[in-house]
Each structure stands twice: as C-alpha cells, then as structure tokens.
C-alpha cells in the first residue's frame, strides 16, 4: 500500500461536511473521512489594548488519501468547501505513518 496523507480542513459552520463526505465517496471512492465540531478562536478585531478572541463554530473535516491522489483531492476540497473566500477556513495536509484502512481503500 502506498503512503497515505491526512488532509484536515478547518471550516466555518455553513459548510456541510456530510455533503463533502458523500461526494468524496461517490466521485473519488474515498470513504476514510471523519469530522467533528470545534470552536475557532481567532483575532477578529484589532483592538490595541487586548486582542479580543471571539469564539465561532467550526467543523473539522478529515480525509485520508494516498499520496498520489492527495493533490487532486486537496484541490477539489478547496473548491467544494469554498475555502477561497474571507473566513473560509483552511486546509492542511500531513503525511501519515503506518496506516490501516480495512475496507476503506
């Protein structure tokens, strides 16, 4: 089995991660996806006295994919999850070590 990469997307709450998972399964035959909710704490205003940290709801979405296809899945994800906008979240990719994907690859 080839090297596996983990793509993590930290997304605003209006992106439907279940929808993303369904399309990945249908178009890419990838079922190794999972998600959880989170809160994003960021510098939202530029008050000098103290950076105000305002929590907002986030969804964290993960995809495990072989290294060769990571590029295309990442590109697709950036488009599908509308990362290309203000407050659109971010996507990052990591290499995985030993990976077991029984029935998922």
């Amino acid at each position: 089995m080839s090297d596996q990469h983990l793509i993590t997307a930290i997304l605003p709450e209006d992106v439907d991660t279940l929808d993303l998972a369904a399309v990945l399964e249908r178009d890419f035959a990838i079922s190794a996806t999972f998600r959880h909710s989170a809160r994003g704490v960021g510098r939202t205003t530029r008050r000098r006295r103290r950076a105000t940290l305002i929590p907002e709801r986030r969804n964290v979405f993960y995809v495990i994919v072989e290294a060769e296809r990571a590029e295309s899945v990442l590109t697709w994800l950036l488009e599908a999850a509308r990362v290309d906008r203000y407050g659109g979240g971010l996507v990052f990719e990591r290499r995985l070590g030993q990976t077991l994907l029984a029935g998922a690859d």
Binding site: I10, P12, G40, V41, G42, R43, T44, I54, E56, L74, L78, V83, D84, R85, Y86, G87, G88, G89, L90, V91, F92, E93
Partner: peptide, 15 residues
C-alpha cells in the same frame, strides 16, 4: 497548508 489570504501570514484563522 492552503488558506485564503495574503502571502505573509501562515495560518489564517479569523472569521
């Protein structure tokens, strides 16, 4: 890492 933003900062987290 990929995010919308500007070249100088890495992790763009704000909403």
């Amino acid at each position: 890492l990929a995010a919308y933003g500007h070249g100088s900062a890495a992790a763009e987290e704000e909403a």
